[in-house]
Amino acid sequence: SASLEDVKTAVLGLLVILQTKLYTLPASHATRVYEMLVSHIQLHYKHSYTLPIASSIRLQAFDFLLLLRADSLHRLGLPNKDGVVRFSPYCVCDYMEPERGSEKKTSGPLSPPTGPPGPAPAGPAVRLGSVPYSLLFRVLLQCLKQESDWKVLKLVLGRLPESLRYKVLIFTSPCSVDQLCSALCSMLSGPKTLERLRGAPEGF
């Protein structure tokens, strides 16, 4: 439990870093931090981490990651405290083949985003970082199938509809809506759902 406290501190630090690096160059920093966060949550489900502190780590990670939004130009952003989304000039939600690297070039400044813009690109060529939603999407499927803490599952179920409104997140990387529907149906009809959940409301 003591070591998990250190892990929790590290994860919180990564969330803060991602919130900053999403809007700064090099964009590969945001890509790497995002991948680290998603990989860490995957390990929770792989090794069945069920301690309360592990659940709190997942809760905080999902609470942040499910706020990711994308505009029509595929640029990622996060809402501010007033709910207004600021889109990044440097990070996009497109999935890119590994051989192309985590970044790609664009020939010049991008068109203005639909929300308040981030800082304008400084040079004639900007390297865009790929932060594909499919990585998070796979972890969300694991959550629906394996999550043991009701608070975490409730958060994910509550945030998913709003995330799905931003269709560009889903359609720019390999996210299977069929698998999502299947996971939701299995969660509702499967007898093991109630068996594994802690803290579920009576009558769920």
Rank of each mutant, 00 (worst) to 15 (best):
S1T: 09
S1H: 08
S3H: 10
L4I: 07
E5R: 04
A10G: 08
A10D: 01
G13D: 01
L18I: 06
L18W: 06
L22Y: 02
P26K: 02
A27H: 08
A27P: 12
A27C: 10
S28P: 05
A30Y: 03
A30W: 03
R32Q: 06
M36R: 04
V38F: 03
S39R: 13
I41F: 02
Q42D: 13
Q42K: 11
H44K: 00
H44M: 01
K46W: 08
Y49E: 02
T50V: 10
L51C: 07
P52F: 02
A54V: 02
A70G: 06
A70F: 03
R75Y: 06
R75Q: 07
G77I: 03
L78P: 00
P79W: 05
N80L: 08
D82A: 13
R86A: 09
S88N: 02
C91S: 06
C93A: 06
C93E: 03
D94P: 04
Y95I: 13
Y95M: 09
M96Y: 14
E97M: 13
E99Y: 12
E99K: 13
G101I: 13
S102L: 13
E103K: 13
K104M: 14
K105T: 13
T106F: 10
S107G: 13
S111E: 15
P113H: 15
P113R: 15
T114L: 11
P116D: 15
G118W: 12
G118F: 12
S130V: 11
V131C: 15
V131F: 10
Y133F: 11
L136E: 01
L136M: 10
F137I: 04
R138T: 11
R138I: 05
Q142A: 10
C143K: 00
C143V: 05
K145W: 14
Q146N: 13
V152G: 01
L160V: 04
E162T: 11
E162K: 07
S163R: 07
Y166K: 04
V168F: 05
I170M: 10
F171I: 12
T172M: 04
P174Q: 10
P174L: 03
V177K: 01
V177H: 02
C181W: 05
A183W: 02
L184Q: 00
L184T: 04
L184F: 01
S186M: 11
M187I: 11
G190F: 08
G190C: 14
L197F: 14
A200G: 08
G203R: 08
F204L: 14
